[in-house]
Design a protein around this nucleic acid. Structure first.
Lengths: 218, 218
DNA sequence: GACCGTCTCCCCCGTGCGGGGGAGGTCCGT
DNA sequence: ACGGACCTCCCCCGCACGGGGGAGACGGTC
């Protein structure tokens, strides 16, 4: 049985592109399309797709809200693959907290897109294997509910600098030497990066840096 | 002053491609070409390039030998950027031990090629910042000289499997659970992977996996 | 002035990681 | 029958890493 996919994106061009890429695969079938998050829930109920490829920015209901809505209201929810651009990286964290199973860059090559759909369909988290649930837990059943003002997820300049060095294989001590700061300072930045990326350790952060295209913008 | 580059590759097509990509940059200048490693030394002496883009497989003298020869005989040697394919990955380790400053896949995108040349020109090791020297030291001044038969650097199936899981952010314990083996077994495989890739820790191994295209072949 | 984000540095603490060994088993090619 | 590669598991050990706190200084904003 093929993997069934529902496309949710306000741009017809993007939907057409995704459809072309995915339908070229014998084991993947696009069963429907929606132009806004607001239309997702009834479609999911009717079509029961395995995977929803969900855009982030949409006019009525964005992908984050739509993800939350689907996971909250549908009995056996589909896997949510958030489709985004690196410019949207501030939403990535939100998407993960909302329960998304992975995210994918629009600039990704066709093979990667196909790969991503297959992976999440198999139940794999595309980017952060365990941290998705970890974050959900941490903010979900904590003493106080999730803060109304979400933590700022956009990396600061310094944090981005640290991540770049991490992703080149430097240790904390080496980064400290390079930036001419104390080792504890680097630890602080690393911790902030891990939190913002939803990564459990530096390896996952580096994976995020590569997968998101962060490493190509330098 | 621009970065000067010497191209060494037996295939004219590859040389032409590299030249086209690099000369498109205002700060990079291709100052010469050679079709075999045997021709490199006099050219390096005459042209004094900042960087040598060195192919691995060449008919008379391969890139590893040529790298050794250049570093051994030239007073202020240029940076050596080994140009290879992932299929040549068994040579990568050798190249690093020979003193190469980085390596680059032929399939890399133009922007990455340019980036690689600039990086090594600036004195950065492209892939393994400290491990290059670390390996050189370990085998260079040890009690016995480097083994005549180089350690097998091609990853075994199991090791490749472990690397793939590492590069998806799994911890040793998670990999052990996934593969249904003991945690110590995973540690053994991880150690083997690190040694073969010349990586200091799992993060550097994951970087290697991404940079080499290993992650796209699955 | 008060506030907030950022960068910097500090404490304690547990543990996952990686290095250094070894060892038994299978399979395969010679 | 033997060596060799591979996979598996075991020991000990040190340390970098990451979590949990806090705190001071600076620069903006309101």
């Amino acid at each position: 049985m093929p993997v069934t996919v529902l496309l949710v994106d306000d741009e017809p061009l993007v939907r057409a592109g995704l459809r072309a890429v995915l339908e070229a695969q014998p084991d993947i079938e696009v069963v429907g399309e929606a132009a806004d998050g607001a239309a997702v829930i009834p479609l999911v109920r009717r079509l029961r797709p395995d995977v929803v490829a969900m855009d982030v920015r949409m006019p009525l209901m964005d992908g984050i809200e739509a993800t939350r809505a689907v996971l909250r209201t549908v009995a056996e929810p589909p896997k949510i693959l958030v489709v985004t651009t690196f410019e949207d990286d501030e939403y990535v964290y939100e998407a993960l907290r909302a329960g998304a199973d992975g995210f994918l860059l629009k600039r990704a090559r066709p093979a990667e897109i196909v790969h991503a759909v297959r992976l999440v369909a198999e139940g794999e988290s595309l980017l952060f294997p365990a941290s998705v649930r970890r974050l959900a837990v941490r903010y979900g059943d904590g003493a106080r509910p999730a803060p109304a003002t979400p933590p700022h997820t956009r990396l600061t300049e310094r944090e981005a600098e640290v991540l770049r060095l991490m992703a080149r294989g430097l240790s904390n001590a080496e980064i400290a030497a390079r930036l001419v700061v104390g080792a504890e300072t680097v630890k602080s930045h690393v911790s902030a990066v891990l939190a913002k990326l939803g990564a459990r350790d530096r390896t996952q952060a580096v994976i995020a840096a590569y997968e998101s295209g962060f490493m190509e913008s330098g």
